Computed example of a mutant assay.
Amino acid sequence: MTVLPYIFVLFGAILWGTTGTAQTFLPDSAHPFIISAGRSASGGLFLLIILVLFKKIQFLSWPWKQTLYAAICISLFQLLFFSSVRLTGVAIASVVAIGSAPVFSGLIEWIFLKMRPTKIWGGSTALAIIGCLFLFVTKGEVNINPLGILYSLVAGLIFALYTMTSKSLLQKEDAISVVAMTFSLSALLLTPFYFIFDVSWLKDTGNVGIIFYLGIATTSIAYVLYGWGLRKIPASSALTLSLAEPTTAALLGVIVVGEILSATSWVGIGLLLGSIAILTFGSKFSNLQNEKEGKCPI
């Protein structure tokens, strides 16, 4: 196994990390649910149209049941996550949702799939979670809402389930087709929100351009990269690498938005980067050792 699948997942997570900064350029009237619906539609349908034009997808033989599960998961994840953001803020919602996902995935793999997590996964995940806590705990200015925390925890569990469902789909279909079908179905599921919340801000071409960026860059490209990597590595490892997302978001917040990070936040960034390095290169080293010893990697 090469290091390339880990790099694909890492770059996908980095693209996800640009989402928050891109959203800061949208007006206050842009409801998170509408942003989610637009993002899913532009990202999923963009890929689906290309696949249909080049006749690269077979609808009759498509695994619709698993795709529907994945679409429901990614739709619920977005709704729960953004609800948590409204209640407890971006920082805490991100820490709990993104930080809990790899833990839930590792536990699910262990309990239901009998795949015992590796020491490398355990160490890198623990370091990453500690890093997340350092990253966002600044001067005690933290708004903790119990219901918001619960929403984030459920969001983390659902994203772990989405990842595992997608991994199963990726054994049958290519990553581009899986992302196209999953997010097109997600867009369909989220369509009712267009009739509930204000959409007048979508008349501005600049706002539409940001939605297309969120759809194509942070959804189509990011999830395809994530899918390519996910085919070759454990779901728990992929979710731990996805913790590059809050690191990217924090750095862009400083460079682009002008936010000021405390010393503890910079420590958190260092711990997150360290956890990513351990998982990426530690897994590569472990596989090489197993090959030399004639063992099969877990």
Rank of each mutant, 00 (worst) to 15 (best):
T2M: 09
L252M: 12
F193S: 07
G44S: 13
L60D: 15
V85W: 08
P246M: 08
K167T: 08
F59M: 12
I35A: 04
G148C: 02
A70Q: 09
G38L: 02
K167F: 07
K139M: 07
I129C: 01
L239M: 13
L272S: 01
L243D: 00
A22W: 08
E245K: 01
W201R: 01
L241W: 00
L251G: 10
W64G: 06
N145C: 07
L10T: 13
K56G: 13
A30C: 00
A71I: 03
S184D: 07
S40F: 12
L169R: 05
G106E: 06
F59L: 15
P234H: 04
S42K: 03
L135C: 06
L87Q: 14
F59I: 13
S275R: 04
W121N: 01
F281N: 00
G294W: 05
Q66R: 14
T118Q: 13
G274Y: 05
A235Q: 05
Q289P: 03
A126F: 14
N287Y: 10
P63Q: 08
S236M: 08
W16H: 12
G99A: 08
R231W: 00
L157A: 12
F25N: 03
L133T: 13
M181F: 12
N207M: 05
L10V: 05
F197M: 05
W228Y: 13
V199R: 05
L169C: 06
A22Q: 09
N287K: 14
T165Y: 13
S83R: 10
K65C: 03
A41E: 07
V257E: 05
A175P: 04
A30T: 04
I98S: 06
D28A: 13
D198Y: 02
V85I: 15
F281R: 01
